[in-house]
Design a protein around this nucleic acid. Structure first.
Length: 651
RNA sequence: GCCCGAGUAGCUCAGUUGGUCAGAGCAGCCGCCUUGUAAGCGGCAGGCCGUCGGUUCGACUCCGACCUCGGGCUCCA
């Protein structure tokens, strides 16, 4: 009969403790700092509460508030405090699920008589949460029979669905016969598998309720809409403040805000939701983006085509769009005695017709058709979002027709091309996503899908980037690989997609004559690099926070004469820059230099050139480069032009 | 499409319980200033308070509908 137990720690060492010791006791035995930082423990590979008693021979790791799983637990426990506060303050309210998420947590509620939360309510809830935290209520875990759970949660229909296994709750277990609960005495109890912090006063409190939003129960738009409260929670006040600061910084680089501040584009109400106009500066940046893409495509063996914005319905019947995609299309216009015309949501059918315009030989393949094709999609009113989700936009759309034999090599070269081009715009942190057959909306045989998916998988794996699976995320006509790019502040954007399509060539009865003198069906590869030019514009704008690299900047250099008697020289500098092919302008000395420099800085121009007496004398400029600590003086104009040339080489 | 919130000058925002509340800063225009690296000074002009209805002696203010925007949910071929 031993009075001690021995457990193994992650570093392989062993430690003996009195019998009956908990994981929390172990942390305390190791050190007071660890005890303070401890949130939960991992016992024999399973995450458990710190109050869990240990048994002899177990392997125990203490998980602290700096670990992801510790933070996750803090957020999860904060969600429980939120639920308790709401149930406390709102008579007749009930609750759905409340998991931790990226940066925080949420909880879904339904208030009596279809009530909703107001901003004032959030303040009251916040205050009540802080009271609960001050009360240091323990989190007490229990397993109870389903019968008992149904009794406890009899007034909470969403919880009953979870107990009965009808609804999925990422934080609960649904196992036959029993329910796992966590109780915060004296009066709150929730279904939950845990683990949780030991008590509400432990690690909690560095949170902020962020917003209230509607969310369908079980994510189903046919089910009731619940009221979701989102919050953020962190292990310390400092981390909370840093997070809030990051949000502010992200807001500053919001493309909608920068688009207005830098006079790049706008969305006039008169035109309609989701339809943008590009102003001269935005138009210039966009044209530079497109020109670079055109040159690269030309070098990559693509041929440029154009197609109209509207077409008779028959084309989209053939392509299958009217069967599968009608919801996303603008309603038809009736022309010519009942003939229905549609705005095009995609360019592929047109490119198929170009393919079909003559008899094709295997010698013509791969045939790579490229178009900046403007499409219109009827996006639901709640989803339009600046340039990233618009109703009218231009795709940098290519369709490549290949033989089945060429397909693998062509896909591999497309992927290389795509990644190289994206790098050309300054994005260089990528991973790949493989999207497979949708559950319901798809055409074609399973064998075709499997084959196409496998080809994409092998090409993706060969690219040497991380490849993650997106089950069911493919287009209705084929699987796809998409390139996800991380931007300057770590957000990921879906960029290019490469889709393999066996179906459309069949629908359009596309053929080529092979070396064997037989007719064969080509494979079609859909490929967009920007996805949408507008969206890519927005991504770059946010990536660069409005400070476009010199080759894309609408104004590359602004010349500022110190006094008005330097105007003529300043103008001659502008002329020289323009003659050398650069974009420069000048602001006359009607206000002090400091003010003019400030304005140029706020426009995020790459270079501000100040010219005064010394420069007139020496035919030089003062160079104030964006981001540099101090300006340079006396740089010869030709030297500066040489710098621009070096910086923009290849663009 | 659904839930919540918001629309006041080109932009960012103030506007107390319905009645001197049509306001500020920046931007714009006109003067003055003549300037060496992130805001010189003065003046002028600028709004049917998103639109349409309603309540009221009286509506930026209260109510309704619609439009647009923002945050979510669903969706994103």
């Amino acid at each position: 009969m031993s009075a001690t137990i021995t457990v193994r720690l992650p570093d392989g060492s062993e430690r003996s403790l009195p019998e009956g010791s908990t994981a929390g006791d172990l942390a305390a035995a190791i050190g007071s700092r660890l005890a303070k930082a401890a949130v939960i423990a991992e016992i024999d590979g399973v995450e458990r509460d710190l109050v869990t008693p240990l048994a002899d021979g177990q392997t125990v790791a203490i998980i602290t508030d700096t670990a992801d799983r510790g933070l996750y637990t803090i957020r999860h426990s904060t969600a429980h405090v939120l639920a308790q506060a709401v149930l406390d303050l709102f008579e007749g309210s009930t609750f759905g699920i409340g998991p931790p998420i990226q940066d925080g947590f949420y909880y879904d509620f339904q208030l009596a008589n279809g009530g909703t939360f107001t901003p004032d309510d959030l303040e009251r809830i916040d205050a009540r949460m802080r009271e609960i935290i001050a009360e240091r209520q323990p989190f007490i875990r229990d397993d109870i029979p389903n019968e008992r759970a149904r009794e406890i949660f009899k007034d909470h229909p969403f919880k009953l669905e979870i107990i009965d296994g009808e609804a999925d709750d990422p934080t609960s277990v649904t196992e036959p016969g029993f329910a796992r609960t966590y109780e915060n005495p004296p009066k709150f109890i929730d279904l939950c598998r845990g683990p949780h912090v030991p008590d509400t006063g432990n690690h909690l409190g560095h949170f902020k309720l962020m917003r209230v939003a509607g969310a369908y129960w079980r994510g189903d738009e046919k089910k009731p809409m619940l009221q979701r409260i989102y919050g953020t929670a962190w292990a310390s006040k400092k981390e909370l403040e840093e997070h809030l600061h990051r949000l502010e910084e992200a807001e500053k680089r919001d493309h909608r805000r920068l688009g207005r501040e830098l006079d790049l584009f706008s969305f006039p109400d008169e035109i309609g939701s989701g339809l943008a106009v590009f102003h001269p500066k935005g138009g210039l940046v966009r044209r530079l983006m497109e020109d670079y893409s055109r040159r690269e495509h030309e070098a990559g063996g693509y041929e440029f085509v154009y197609s109209p914005h509207i077409t008779k319905a028959g084309l989209f019947e053939t392509s299958g769009h009217l069967d599968w995609y009608a919801d996303g299309m603008y309603p038809p216009m009736e022309l010519d005695e009942g003939q229905a015309y549609y705005l095009k949501p995609m360019n592929c059918p047109f490119h198929c017709l170009i393919y079909k315009s003559q008899q094709r030989s295997y010698r013509d393949l791969p045939l790579r058709l490229f178009e900046f094709g403007t499409v219109y999609r009827y996006e639901k009113s709640g989803v339009v979002h600046g340039l990233t989700r618009a109703r009218g936009f231009s795709q940098d759309d290519a369709h490549i027709f290949t033989t089945k034999e060429q397909m693998g090599e062509e896909l591999a070269s497309i992927l290389r091309f795509v990644l190289d081009l994206l790098r050309g715009y300054g994005l260089d942190d990528f991973y790949l996503e493989l999207s497979t057959k949708p559950e319901e909306k798809y055409v074609g045989s399973d064998a075709d899908w499997d084959e196409a998916t496998e080809v994409l998988r092998s090409v993706g794996e060969a690219a040497g980037l991380d490849l993650v699976l997106d089950p069911g995320g493919g287009a209705f006509y084929g699987p796809k690989i998409s390139v996800q790019a991380r931007d300057a502040i770590g957000r990921t954007w879906q960029m290019s997609t490469v889709q393999l399509d066996f179906q459309t060539p069949q629908r359009f009865e596309l053929e080529y004559v092979g070396a064997d003198n037989q007719r064969h069906q080509p494979i079609m590869i859909h490929r967009a690099l920007f996805g949408s030019v507008e969206r890519f514009f927005a991504v770059l704008l946010e990536h660069y926070a409005g400070a476009f690299p010199t080759w894309l900047a609408p104004v590359q250099a602004r010349v500022l004469p110190v006094r008005d008697d330097h105007d003529a020289y300043a103008q001659s500098v502008v002329d020289q820059l323009k003659a050398a092919g650069y974009r420069a302008d000048m602001v006359e000395a009607t206000e002090p230099l400091g003010g003019r420099i400030r304005k140029a800085k706020m426009e995020k121009l790459p270079y501000v050139l100040v010219v005064g007496d010394d420069d007139v004398e020496a035919t030089s400029v003062g160079v104030n480069e964006r981001g540099s600590e101090r300006p340079e003086r006396g740089v010869p104009v030709q030297d500066f032009i040489g710098r621009l040339a070096a910086e923009t080489a290849g663009r």
